[in-house]
Amino acid sequence: MIVCVAVVGHQNNPLYIQSFTEADDALKLHHIVHCSLDVIDERVNNPRKSGPMLNETFLGLLYPTENYKVYGYLTNTKVKFILVTTDLDVRDADVRNFFRRFHAAYVDAVSNPFHVPGKKITSRTFAERVSNIVKSFGFSSG
């Protein structure tokens, strides 16, 4: 189950963060997303280490923890998408597909002339679309 998706701006500021848990514990997901920026920073700042990953937007699994997984995606404009899921066996292809659709939704949202770049995304349409993508995660390609 995807518990959280987030868009983080190129100054590491949260642009959109949505949790999909029933409990009132969004803050811990904020924490997970925020801390995962460490990993993204590390990968971006160490091109030698990421090597062939450099040209790819999909950053793969960021956190190999026991209980949840964090995936990352970095757009060309250095906007990060972060996905937190509690599914422990997720196929990379599914995540890639998710991020591709999410990216498309994001691009549409920020193309809105009333959206101020670098500000939080408040579009309700975007939120709906994201929620649909989250719901269909794992089913669309599987």
């Binding site: 409990a23 514990d25 803050l27 811990k28 997901l29 904020h30 924490h31 997970i32 801390c35 209980n67 949840y68 509690t86």
Partner: peptide
């Protein structure tokens, strides 16, 4: 949040 993130999951 940090404790919650690690313990509640």
């Amino acid at each position: 949040p940090v404790n919650s993130a690690s313990l509640s999951m």
